[in-house]
Structures are given as structure tokens and as C-alpha cells.
Write a protein that binds this DNA or RNA. Structure first.
Lengths: 339, 339
DNA sequence: TTGTACGCGTTATCAG
DNA sequence: CTGATAACGCGTACAA
């Protein structure tokens, strides 16, 4: 790889001048400017981001850390998709790193992004506690926004939604439709979200003076297979139910699969309800759309928070100044012969 | 952030010694070793990856580039999930960057990863052509493996599966079950995969001496909403069909949703078939499991190729030498008071 | 066993 | 307008 020094030599100028041309900062005569561009193309030069970021402590990119146990699943992919699009809109790169399987590894992922000098970090936590995250936010100068958790000390760094209320409303809506035997498939019970949803369900059942029956509550772990198993379990134990609420859409899909296999049609004979407001969500009863989780809105809010913390201003305009782009523009204007 | 220099001063040694302690290379007396560790903890020191990677041209991480238009969708998330797990097994970080919306941007994403000095790159392309990728592979020293494309010049850098054959087999299986009116929902027709699957379908229909009827072929774009629209279109136009093949599971899910809404039960009244071999896939007829796409196997193969190109050897053992980990081990051994 | 000094590729601060 | 030169934080021959 050719360096800035090579380009400088070819153009008969100094490194500093090349740097000025690339960054657009400082004055450079049009003549030398052209020479430099020529040299850049001749050398096939590409700026080295590592060196640049090391020198500037900036990187024009936004990091996101998520545990890979959440990577499968449509909820995550929707979040990632929305985040990437929003980040693209502000002219940056979204880079996702793996939080793996422990609080320690989530920490490492964060530090990795910090080392990369990411402008900001989106944290979709799984193992870190609220307190640990509050502490990390305090110790870090870069903006960090946490998704799906309620932070104690730094509420402005947290974006979440009211899972308990969603579950409460969903359950209530089914009750109002006359359902008396509503089964519930939980998420992983080590997840706050799963607990909130379970509690919302229990509360609604209780408020309706219906019994909370343990046999109708099946523990799942978010995956479609758990939905399959849950239905199998209900049927095998001959537990009566006229409706099923799954704590997420993936399990709802699994449940649907198994219900279909068993010859039970949905929603004619059984109402099935998933939670996530994502394109996959096939089973939300139309009337219940108000119970959906606003994933899209949530992630947009995350990015907006991030932007506001990004000491504003330098959003898109800077784009034209990024050396890589300047470089490519000039290449683009060159005759197309080689393509 | 405290630097290596700070640590060196605190420990009363030189930077070089600290570096040796951290890297595990070279001889250091146990005494100074302990002093250095003490200084590291006292300073709350963390090595700067940017600087290290700049100096060594290595990074202990593996990059992956995928267009964000593919981020939603369970197929992608399954691939990402599998890749992350495999990469974790070899003690590295998987980092995902956005290929955005053009060949140029896919290039940039690759160069970004190259700049980061990623050990290897997994490319799930959408806009780059075969020839362009062959060229990139030639110009790059880092290992690059391309998923889901047949490379002309560098077949060993490509991992893919036979989509046409899968579609052919799926269609044939339905025909053998007596279906004569098989509808087909395509993927985005700018995608090679979508075309292969469509061709497989057409060929099977042709071989069975059935007419390939355009009215039964609906163009989709991979999303669940397209599945919904496809069924709506078929029903509105009163096109008869007893089976539907969707070119991916997401569209199959959308189709199922709409069939259910229309009061048509699956699979009793209509057979529905998705392609992907992912946990979400609820609708593969059991007997057709041979037509599934081996996503998991494919991505595992990708990582295996990568490893073999990674001038072997330095897989896990190096883990213990990574400074960050050494650092943390000593922290872990310290009393727990502050947690 | 330890320290010195230079290189990695940029940016940024000064003079000129 | 342009060119030295010092950071940026770390790795590493080469000396000591």
C-alpha cells in the first residue's frame, strides 16, 4: 500500500500539503491541488484509517454491541436494519461487534469500539447490570446509549419501552374478547424484558379475577423451537386454552407451526399473539395493534439521542471533506476506460 | 486515558519492558513483571488497539460486510449468528460493517475492514460483480471469502449452494404429490439467487410437461410484506393454485399470514414452501427437507476456509498473550471489593 | 534482563 | 500558500 509520503514525493510536495488537500482544511493552490490528485491516482493511494484515527481520535463511525445469542431472531435483525439505515443517513458507518457471553465480554466489546475511536456507541445489553452500565457511562467521554434498559443515574442515555404494559394490554384485550384460558409462553427468565411481560400477563389475569394457572405458563427462551415445544407441552398435558400469547414473534411463529401441524387453525380456533412490531409479525390480531412494541420508533430515538450527544453540527457536510470521498470523486470524473 | 508511557514511569521501567510484559514476548524478570502489573492496575491502563494494530498490521478480528437491505430477514440473522459463534470459537472478534447500497460502498466497506487490519474478510455481496470480486481478491493480501456466489478465477474463495437445484427439487416434490397449479413468489430479480430459484421452478414445471403460467409467478422482494401481497394478488385475480413456493422463508411467512386471513388453512388446503434452512422456517413439508438450503453448513464452511487461509497455527493459544486478557486476569484475581 | 531509538501513517502546530 | 517537525500509542531490532 502506498502511503501519503509516496504521494507527496510523486507530486513533488510535502506530506503536509497532501494532508491539506485530503482534509480540505487550510489553503492550497489549485495548481498543486491538481498535482496532488494526479499523484494520488497514479499511486492508487488510499488513506490509512488506523493512522488517521490514531492521530485525530475520531473515526466517523458508530459502534453497536449485541450478544451473539440475540443475533438470530427477527427482533434483533430489525433493530440492526433500522439502526444501519439511520446511521447511513447521517453519513457514517455502523459497525456491529459481538458482546458474546458475559458482562466481561460486553465490556471488552465496548472498549474495543472505544479503542477504534467510535464517535458513539449503541449498547443492547444482555449481561451488564444497570449499575455497571451507569458506571461505564460515567467513565466514558464518548456518547453511549443503552437500548431496552432503564438506567438509574443516566436516564437520558436509555431508550426503552414499557413491556409490562404491552403484555398487560395484550392480555386484557384477549380477555375482553371472551378468552378465559390464555396460555403464556415466556422469554428467557434471566431477561428483564421477559419478566416484565410475564408480570403484565399475570396482572391482567389477576385484575380480571381469573386464576393465574402455572400449567398455562410455559417457559421459553425466545427461539421458534421453544414455541413449538410450548404448544407440544400444552397439548400433551391436555391443558385447555383458547388463546396463546408468546413473548416474542419468533416463539409465536414456532407456536403457529406446531398448532398447524396439530390441525388447529389460527386464529379461528386459537388466538395467537406475538409481541414485536416487526415485518415478520404475522399474528398480531389487527385490533391489538396498539399493544405492539415500537421497535422502529425506539431505534430511531436511539440514533436521535446519539446525534444530539455528538456535539452537533458536523453531520453530513463533513462528508465531502472525507478524503476517501474526495479521492473517489476525482476518480469518478476520470474517463471510464478501466471499468 | 493512561498510556504505556505512564505505566512505565509508575513502574520505574521503560515502555519496552511494559510492552514485553503485555505481549509475553522476550524475557522479563518476575520482579519487574509484578511491578508492571501493579502499575497497570494503578493506572487503570488499557492498551490502545489503534496504535497496536497500526504498529503490527494485525488486529485479531474478522470482518464481514453485508448490505443493510439484507439486515432484516431471518436468513441473514442466522448467517450472522452462526458466523459470530464460529469466530468466537477461534478466539477472535467478528465485526460487521454495512455494505449500504452500491458496489462502490461495498468496496469502501471492504477497504474499511482492510484499514482496520482485519485478519480476514467475509463478503456477502449484493452489488459487486463476480469479476470485480475476483479482482479485489487478487489485489488483496488478506484472505477474503465470498458467500453465495460462484467466483470464476478464485473458486476456493467462494462458498455457495445450488439454488436452482433446490428450487427444482422442491417444485418436483410438489408435482409428485399431485399438485398441478403451483404458484411461485420470486425474490428480487436483480439477485442471482432469485433467478436461480425461479429457473429451477420453471425447469421442473417444464419437465413435467406442465405449462409455465406467468400469472402464477409473482415478483417479490424477499420481505414478508411481499408474501402478503403475492397471496392477495393471486386471490384477487382468482388464479387457481393448490401450492405456493416462496423464494425465502420471510415471504413464506407473509404468505401464510395472508392465507390465514383469507380463511385458507395451510397445509390442509394449500401447501406452502419456504426455502431457508433456518429455525424460523415453519413451513417446509417434512418430506421436503432435502430441498433446504444448508445455511449453517455453508457459513461453517466459510469460517473453515478462512481459518485455513489464516496461515494457520496462531488460533487460540495466542489468546492468553493478548494484553487485555492478561490484564484482566490479574484484575480478576484481585479482591472483589469494588464490584 | 532492560533501555534506546526508530517506524507505523496521519494530523496539527508552527515557522517561513 | 507550503514545509519541517512534533505528537498519537505502541512494537521491536539493536545495544547495553
Amino acid at each position: 500500500m502506498s502511503t501519503m509520503q509516496d504521494v507527496a514525493k510523486k507530486a513533488g510536495v510535502s506530506k503536509a500539503t497532501v494532508s491539506r488537500v485530503l482534509s480540505g482544511k487550510g489553503y492550497v493552490s489549485e495548481a498543486t491541488r491538481q498535482q496532488v490528485f494526479a499523484a494520488i491516482e497514479a499511486a492508487g493511494y488510499r488513506p490509512n484509517l488506523l493512522a488517521r484515527n490514531l492521530a485525530t481520535s475520531k473515526s466517523q463511525c458508530i459502534g453497536m454491541v449485541v450478544t451473539n445469542t440475540l443475533y438470530s431472531g427477527s427482533y434483533f435483525s430489525e433493530i440492526l436494519s433500522q439502526a444501519a439505515k439511520k446511521v447511513e443517513e447521517i453519513g457514517r458507518q455502523l459497525i456491529l461487534v459481538d458482546g458474546k457471553h458475559s458482562a466481561q465480554q460486553e465490556r471488552e466489546a465496548i472498549e474495543f469500539l472505544l479503542d477504534l475511536r467510535c464517535d458513539a456507541i449503541i449498547l443492547y445489553p444482555r449481561y451488564l447490570t444497570i449499575d455497571e452500565m451507569d458506571e461505564i457511562i460515567e467513565q466514558t467521554t464518548q456518547p453511549i446509549v443503552v437500548v431496552n434498559r432503564r438506567l438509574r443515574k443516566h436516564p437520558s442515555h436509555a431508550v426503552f419501552c414499557d413491556h409490562k404494559k404491552s403484555a398487560y394490554n395484550a392480555t386484557l384485550a384477549l380477555i375482553e374478547r371472551g378468552h378465559r384460558h390464555i396460555a403464556f409462553i415466556t422469554g428467557s427468565l434471566d431477561s428483564p424484558t421477559a419478566l416484565e411481560r410475564l408480570n403484565g400477563y399475570k396482572q391482567a389475569i389477576g385484575h380480571a379475577n381469573l386464576p393465574v394457572e402455572p400449567q398455562r405458563i410455559i417457559e421459553g427462551k425466545w427461539t421458534p423451537a421453544c414455541g413449538v415445544n410450548a404448544i407440544t407441552s400444552l397439548l400433551e398435558r391436555r391443558v385447555p386454552f383458547s388463546a396463546v400469547i408468546a413473548s416474542n414473534d419468533d416463539m409465536a411463529i414456532g407456536a403457529l407451526k406446531q398448532l398447524t401441524r396439530a390441525g388447529i387453525s389460527v386464529p379461528q380456533q386459537v388466538s395467537l399473539l406475538g409481541f414485536d412490531d416487526i415485518p415478520v409479525a404475522p399474528f398480531l390480531l389487527p385490533a391489538l395493534s396498539s399493544v405492539k412494541d415500537p421497535v422502529t420508533d425506539m431505534i430511531h430515538e436511539v440514533i436521535n439521542r446519539l446525534i444530539s450527544m455528538l456535539d452537533g453540527g458536523n453531520m453530513l457536510p463533513q462528508k465531502a471533506l472525507i478524503s476517501g470521498l474526495v479521492l473517489r470523486e476525482s476518480v469518478a470524473n476520470a474517463p471510464d476506460t478501466e471499468r
